[in-house]
Amino acid sequence: MNTIDTIHLSPWREIAAREARFGYGLQRPQRNVLSRLWHLYCTLAAKRRSRLALEELSPHLLKDIGLTETEARREAAVPFWR
């Protein structure tokens, strides 16, 4: 018996791995209001952080990703709720 044969996931981890692999189960309607609000906050904060990081990129790096300085500044100026 080798090491691979001895490793077994718990039943709950197997279900979670299967759901993650096939993409279903990611949207859980049974989540409470606070959980949904926290998820919304995290999503908006991540967007804002990426926009602020875009604003700090040098012209050389912006050219690498196919943006002009004007486009990057315009995107960085977008409010967090959009």
Rank of each mutant, 00 (worst) to 15 (best):
F22D: 15
P79I: 06
M1G: 11
T6L: 12
A45S: 06
R82K: 10
S10I: 01
L62D: 03
L40V: 14
R49K: 12
L34S: 10
A53V: 04
N32A: 12
M1N: 09
P11M: 04
L40I: 06
T3D: 14
H60I: 05
A72H: 00
G25W: 00
A76I: 00
A17W: 10
V78A: 04
L44I: 05
A45K: 02
A17K: 13
T3N: 13
T43Q: 15
F22H: 15
G23T: 01
R73W: 05
K47N: 06
G25F: 02
S10T: 05
Y24A: 07
T70E: 14
E14I: 09
E71C: 05
E56V: 10
R21Q: 14
Y24V: 07
G66F: 05
R73D: 08
L34M: 05
R13Q: 11
Q27D: 15
S58E: 11
R31S: 12
N2Y: 02
H60Y: 08
L52R: 15
Y41A: 06
I65T: 10
K47W: 13
E56R: 07
A46F: 10
E69W: 06
L54P: 01
R13H: 12
I15Y: 12
R51K: 06
P11H: 01
W12H: 13
T6Q: 09
R73V: 11
G25Y: 00
R18C: 11
R31I: 13
E71R: 02
N2M: 01
I7Y: 01
Y24I: 06
H39Q: 14
S10K: 07
L57A: 02
C42K: 08
E69M: 10
I65A: 01
A72K: 04
I15R: 14
V33Y: 11
V78T: 02
E56C: 09
E71H: 00
L61R: 14
S50H: 12
I4C: 03
R18F: 15
C42A: 07
F22Y: 14
S10W: 06
R74T: 12
E71S: 01
Y41P: 00
